[in-house]
C-alpha cells in the first residue's frame, strides 16, 4: 500500500453524489472499506446500490464528492482511472462473459491485452484461477455451453486473473436458478477467506451472515444503516431497515 495516506482504508467515499438527469441516484454517500474488509450492501430496488459500486471503478461518473481507492484519487486523469480499474475487479449480475471467446480466452484476454503478459504465462494464470473456482475442465468450452452457475464462476475467475485488490459483486446470484446459487456463493466465501477486500450487493442474507464484516442498508440513494451483521439482523435501528428485513427474510 505504497500510495496509501497512512490509514488502513482501501476504499473511501466522501460525500459522493450522482445524478441521472434530474434524478439523484446517490445523495452524499460516505463509506470507508478497510483492507480485507467484506461489506454487504442491500436495499430495495432502485435504491442506488449498483450505482454506488459502479462509481468505484468509474463505470458511472460521480458528480460531486471524493472517491479514493488504495490511495489513488478518482478524478478525470485517465491514468488514475486506469490505475484504479487495475486494482478493482467486478462481477456482474448478467455475467457479461465474452461469448465469442472460450472460457480460457475470456480469462487470458485482460492479462494479455491490458497487461501485456505472454500467452503461456496468461494461460497458466488462468488455469490457476479456474481451479480456484472449480471448473478447470471447462477451459476449452464456450460460455454458451455452460450453466449459469458455471458462467458466473468463469466471470469471477476472469476478474481474479487481473489480480485485483478489491472485488465488487453486483447481485452475482440473482440471475441464477436456485440450485446454482450455492456453488457461486461457495466460491465467494472461499475468496473472502483469502483476505480479499470485497463489496457485495446481494440479498443472500445467509451469505451475508457468514461473510460480512459490515452490513449496509441503502434506500433512496442514501446509506440508511451501517452495522455489524450481528447488530444489523438482531437489532436494526431504522424503521426502513426493519421493514426491508422483514420482507426479505419472510421469503
Amino acid at each position: 500500500m505504497a500510495r496509501n495516506t497512512g490509514d488502513n482504508a482501501m476504499i473511501r467515499l466522501e460525500g459522493v453524489s450522482k445524478w441521472f438527469g434530474n434524478f439523484r441516484a446517490l445523495c452524499d454517500v460516505d463509506l470507508t472499506v478497510d483492507q480485507g474488509e467484506r461489506v454487504v450492501i442491500c436495499g430495495p430496488s432502485g435504491s442506488g446500490k449498483s450505482t454506488l459500486i459502479r462509481c468505484i471503478n468509474r463505470l458511472e461518473e460521480h458528480e460531486s464528492g471524493r472517491i479514493v481507492v488504495d490511495g489513488i484519487v478518482m478524478d478525470d486523469d485517465t491514468k488514475h482511472i486506469a490505475d484504479i480499474r487495475a486494482e478493482v475487479g467486478m462481477v456482474f449480475q448478467q455475467f457479461n462473459l465474452f461469448p465469442h471467446l472460450s472460457v480460457l480466452e475470456n480469462c487470458t484476454l485482460g492479462p494479455m491485452k491490458a497487461r501485456g503478459i505472454g500467452r503461456a504465462e496468461a494461460q497458466k494464470l488462468a488455469m490457476e484461477y479456474l481451479e480456484k473456482v472449480h471448473i478447470p475442465e471447462q477451459a476449452g468450452k464456450f460460455p454458451s455451453q455452460l450453466s449459469g452457475g458455471q458462467q458466473q464462476r468463469v466471470a469471477i475467475a476472469r476478474s481474479l486473473c487481473m489480480t485485483p485488490k478489491v472485488m465488487l459483486f453486483d447481485e452475482p446470484t440473482s440471475a441464477l436458478d436456485p440450485e446454482m446459487i450455492k456453488e457461486v456463493l461457495d466460491v465467494m466465501i472461499e475468496l473472502a477467506e483469502t483476505g480479499m477486500t470485497m463489496i457485495c450487493v446481494t440479498h443472500e442474507m445467509g451469505f451475508a451472515k457468514t461473510v460480512a464484516d459490515k452490513m449496509i442498508f441503502m434506500d433512496a440513494g442514501q446509506i440508511v444503516e451501517a452495522a455489524t451483521p450481528a447488530d444489523f439482523f438482531s437489532n436494526p435501528k431504522s424503521e426502513r431497515t426493519k421493514l426491508f428485513l422483514s420482507q426479505i427474510l419472510s421469503h
Binding site: R58, L59, A82, G89, F92, Q94, K113, A114
Partner: peptide
C-alpha cells in the same frame, strides 16, 4: 452488442480501442 460487454471489458482494464478490437467488433 450488449453494453455489458463494454462494462466487462472496462472492468478488466481494456482501453476503448482494445475493447473495439477484441470484444465489440468480433461480435
Amino acid at each position: 452488442v450488449h453494453r455489458g460487454q463494454w462494462e466487462a471489458s472496462t472492468s478488466i482494464g481494456l482501453s476503448k480501442t482494445k475493447t473495439y478490437l477484441y470484444v465489440i467488433l468480433p461480435q
